[in-house]
């Protein structure tokens, strides 16, 4: 049935799935970059012992962690443009797919950044306090202590939860179907509705999700093995 022509667009059903997969990967990849950069920055700032910086970081984490992901998706797509006139006029004029894509990337990126921030903070705080003192005693300035001493070990320690987070992000991107983004789950449902072969359509989508998640898992396992510290963290996930 995947080789049959779809009723619209002059494409076959399998091509709809491929196009959906493309959006899923694009949203996930962009959101992951945002989440990793912002999450690392905020997680790091929360360990600097500066009261107001820590409070901003805490507020960030609580804000994005305490609101359901689905609600956040609606807030970014339907509500945020109402508050920013320039954004609203762009959303009206732009290709809907672009606005949906941007909303989904921001939503998933910021949501995941709060969770990564927690992991980065936990990673840094799991290191012995003496590591920071030793860096300082050598004359390194605070940013250098983080850059050369604390973060390299903290990131190694949190690779396993970061792997879970990456896989979560990919699966969470299916929420973007609720604002109309034609990603993988959206396409699977569409095919089901056209053909009434829901079982086959969602089986295909499921297999594709599993394949992406496993690929992400393998990549992270490779990273874990490549960065393993001799005599310290002896082995990565096999």
């Amino acid at each position: 049935m995947f080789l049959q022509d779809a009723p619209e667009g002059g494409v076959q059903y399998w091509e709809l799935l491929v196009s959906g997969l493309g959006w899923t990967l694009a949203v996930s990849a962009c959101a992951w970059v945002i989440a990793l950069l912002l999450g690392s920055a905020i997680g790091t700032l929360r360990t600097t012992h500066r009261a107001w910086v820590t409070r901003v970081g805490n507020a960030w984490v609580e804000l994005f962690r305490n609101i359901p992901l689905l609600v956040q998706m609606f807030l970014w797509y339907f509500v945020a443009p109402e508050f920013v006139p320039a954004l609203k006029s762009w959303v009206i004029a732009a290709d809907p797919a672009h606005a949906q894509f941007l909303s989904a990337v921001l939503c998933l990126g910021l949501f995941t950044s709060a969770r990564i921030a927690e992991q980065v903070r936990a990673g840094i705080q799991s290191l012995p306090q003496g590591q920071r003192l030793a860096g300082m005693a050598l004359g390194l300035r605070e940013p250098q202590v983080y850059r050369y001493v604390l973060l390299p070990m903290a990131f190694r320690i949190i690779i396993p939860p970061l792997t879970s987070e990456t896989m979560n992000l990919i699966k969470n991107s299916s929420i973007a179907l609720t604002i109309g983004l034609a990603e993988l789950t959206f396409r699977a449902r569409e095919i089901g509705e056209y053909t009434f072969h829901f079982f086959e359509a969602f089986s295909a989508a499921t297999l594709i999700y599993v394949a992406i998640a496993m690929a992400a898992n393998r990549v992270m396992a490779l990273v874990e093995r490549r960065t393993a510290v001799p005599g310290y963290i002896a082995h990565g996930a096999k």
Binding site: G130, A134, A137, Y148, Y232
Partner: peptide, 13 residues
Amino acid sequence: VGMVFQHFELFPH
């Protein structure tokens, strides 16, 4: 000022 710690604190990575 050089400093040496009880738990060595070499950088493991």
